[in-house]
Design a protein around this nucleic acid. Structure first.
Lengths: 135, 135
DNA sequence: GAAAGTAGTTTCCAAAAGTAAAGTAGTTTC
DNA sequence: GAAACTACTTTACTTTTGGAAACTACTTTC
């Protein structure tokens, strides 16, 4: 080893910047439910609290409330109160929230392919046992 | 409300399939360190345990070891032991692991834009409050 | 005036995720 | 033969995250 820190030559400032950008994105988007809520709103366009709770499978009121509040704080989601018989509240993505669409699409596309891969692997394994994916 | 379940008309089977695909992807890719490790390997091409630990800022040996093992189990990363003076081990993405590149790029791109957005918001406020920006 | 529907909030708890530091194991260098 | 370097593993926690159920609050319907 004649070089003090060989890492630096390959891990350039550009790499560092990319990695930081990825962390910035994850800050807003990671967690068990955030992507599910964002994606649901992306597909539905607009949705009410109760509807979201039925659609985002398994989420409780506490988590849904919390996630929506965080997304609102980050200007990804907008909340609207409607003056209806029992008051209703609807949520939708902001223009800015909609810029996440490409990430969502890439993740959906990758996941679809992954499932096909797993399933075809499994059928090669002569329909034996083992579980990875749920239906 | 004359309809039993109005959700169904907007939350189509296609939406459900997309959401499931997103969850499948998240299963492999979520967690505090996985994307950081995958991205680092994507940028570096190949890296050793110690180098990765220096580059993935803040990760401990236990987590790095665990994450690498999980990624290996999912065929995203391949581990190679080299017969060197003190034994060295290198890790790199598999061909399959490299298919995550698009997601990584989208996340990096979104994060860069987000940072610009936040900073320009702040500089508007800074003009009024004459605050110093931190980098 | 009780029940049911809207949209949450609060409390209390459990499980998952992450961390720091010390320990293991096998070379090789001094 | 002690120290250093590689790559981890183990232990003993702490922190974070999530979940179930009960509760608030207001309105309309029966």
């Amino acid at each position: 080893m004649s070089q003090k820190n060989p890492d630096e030559f390959r891990f350039t400032p550009h790499c560092h910047e990319q990695l930081r950008a990825i962390y910035d994105t994850l800050d807003l988007v990671s967690g068990k439910w955030r992507i599910a809520v964002i994606s649901s709103l992306n597909f539905l366009g607009e949705s009410r609290f109760g509807e979201l709770q039925r659609i985002v499978d398994g989420i409780g009121a506490k988590m849904l409330s919390q996630v929506l509040k965080e997304l609102e704080d980050n200007e990804l989601v907008i909340r609207t109160v409607h003056d209806t018989k029992p008051v209703t509240v609807s949520y939708k993505l902001t223009d800015y929230g909609r810029t996440l669409e490409k990430i969502i699409e890439e993740m959906a596309s990758w996941g679809l392919n992954h499932r096909r891969r797993i399933l075809s692997d499994r059928s090669l394994e002569a329909l034996a046992e083992s579980e990875t994916l749920s239906v």
